[in-house]
Design a protein around this nucleic acid. Structure first.
Lengths: 198, 198, 198, 198
DNA sequence: TATGAATGAGCCTTCATTCAT
DNA sequence: GATGAATGAAGGCTCATTCAT
């Protein structure tokens, strides 16, 4: 057998990524040392550098995973059935739920992006822009067909809404009074009311 | 006059604070070295530590200044004249404008707060909470008198809106297509539409 | 053989400890910089911190080594054969000889203990107390059986004698007129005369 | 009146010296900052440097005061009346009492001497040697006249005894079970028994 | 006499990364 | 695949001392 015999060894990169995510969310990228990550994952530095080119790479992987996930979900919803209002509401609620379900990633996203190397930052931003673009298109669609207010600036609406989403990590606490679904419903409502032609 | 002849020497702490603000906004707290700050301010490390107890103190000063300013303005607007809708709109637009006018502080605020020492973080959060509380009271007032939707959760509305405000630093660029006033107007409109009883 | 070819590289922690001992004795703990230690040992700071947690740790290691050595020797002599006077004389002479043979450690011991962190200081003191206690028991034994003067305060005798021992580092010079054995004989005689029932 | 009007200002150098002594004894010379001294004395750095040339000077003053005092007392006792045994006993007891009465100075003496600049260290050592010399002369006198043991090495006796005296600071605690007089009596007894022709 | 702002050198420690094994 | 010793650069901070006022 190739190397699958030892399930622990087989999971090394995953374990490293998981612990890194937790630690980056907890104390920030710069405040997390490579030593802490490898200790948490139960391996040594050499192992980390065997799988990842640098500490930066590790952070980039976190981003890549999240972006891939969210892009897929948005694509599915946006191109699904229902009125544009329904689809926008569904997309908004969904991004809130997945942001809360992956709150660590969410925290890292808005706190640590500027700590990536310039090139990686550029790559992440580009991907992010595509995601926003798809969202913006939904707003635009609703505006064109008269469902949403004519005087809207769709790009501003996107920035408005994703500010709220990115900040979930700042205040949302698991086990608090609100479930992810409740926040999602309320945020999606707020968005819809804010854009809809009254 | 005592020693006002040399305007440069007279302003050492202010200069340090100004350069620190700029650098923290630019590259983040952890990525800014004390050495860089003092070089930018044209003094030596000893001078910095003569005026500030630590690098952390410097960051705290930035926060304290911003919080003081925003609290004053909100207080004035909230207790001013006009309907609750007018006052909420005015307060929302105002915080957008001042956030854009002090974009460096805004960036620092949401990116670097978690890099403060736990005690200082607590102090800042407490002050921030008072600010949010005042804002929440406005939403609550409108809801009670039927101007705003009955099913609103005022605290969630506050988190929703300030997420957007704090994220201005992420995308707003001076000299871009939108003036501060335009963004302020649009954001305030979005907020009002989102809460108002249709 | 694994990597024994390079005898120099094999002994990094030992070399660090040896150079640190020499330097601490020479100029005191606070006056010795980590930089000086690593330069003397021919490595870099990173190497030192790879093996020792802190400069403090290094000092603690010196103490631990000395304390271990002396406790072993005292235990062996005290529980050996001979009258109590013979055993006390032998123990006294032995501690003088080993103190002179490790004069650097002796100097460090009485000069730098108070520069250890409080917890480490406590640990060293506790160990030291056990050592003194064993010595005190010898004096007590002689007093009870009438060999030593009845009005003695054994604990004061111990403090009296070890003051003299610890101060060897202040005046004894290798290559001077007195051998370690001569000083040991004379000190042990002085002690015995001072306690013996005339 | 010259400057005696303000009693507080008049005592500045004395207050500085007193606080410095206390602090040096407490935490050692190197661990005490000039800032701490001036704060304890309620003045500013400029004042300290007005009266003392350097931090080193301050330490030197402490030594000078102690040495002067002890030399005077020994001179008086040694050249007084009584047998040589009586005078040695009296001198030994006296140095113990004054060492305990000025325990801070005693601690500083044995811990911090090597932190003086080389020249000042030399000066202090020379003065100290004169003191020891006077004491040694007493032992020598007793040995010559047959009161003390013929095989004694008087210089070694002096080092033996003053080791004990210098170490008082390590273990003696005010308010403990032993008065200064009790320790003095016991130490002087031990010394006398150790040297006397049985 | 006395202030206190400012210097400049130095200190201990941390850390991402490399490399021989 | 993986180890862990070692590097080298940088980081935040302290401190005795000076000097214009």
């Amino acid at each position: 057998m190739a190397h699958g015999g030892n399930t622990k060894a087989a999971a090394v990169p995953q374990r490293l990524l998981a612990e890194a995510t937790r630690l980056f969310a907890d104390r920030g990228f710069d405040r997390t040392s490579v030593q802490e990550i490898v200790e948490a994952a139960g391996v040594t530095k050499g192992a980390l550098y065997h799988y990842f080119g640098s500490k930066d790479d590790l952070l980039h992987e976190v981003y890549a995973r999240v972006l891939r996930l969210q892009t897929e979900r948005l694509e599915e919803i946006a191109s699904g059935t229902g009125t544009v209002a329904e689809r926008l509401h569904r997309a908004a609620a969904d991004v809130v739920v997945t942001s809360i379900e992956n709150l660590d990633d969410t925290k890292i996203f808005f706190r640590s992006m500027h700590q990536l190397s310039p090139e990686k930052q550029k790559a992440v931003r580009a991907e992010r822009r595509r995601y926003h673009e798809r969202f913006r298109a939904l707003v635009e669609e609703g505006r064109r067909q008269g469902t949403f207010r004519a005087e809207l600036r769709p790009d501003l609406v996107v920035d408005f809404f994703f500010g709220s989403v990115h900040h979930l990590g700042t205040w949302y606490r698991e086990g608090g009074p609100l479930s992810a679904a409740q926040v999602a419903e309320e945020f999606a409502d707020l968005l819809l009311y804010s854009v809809r032609q009254p």
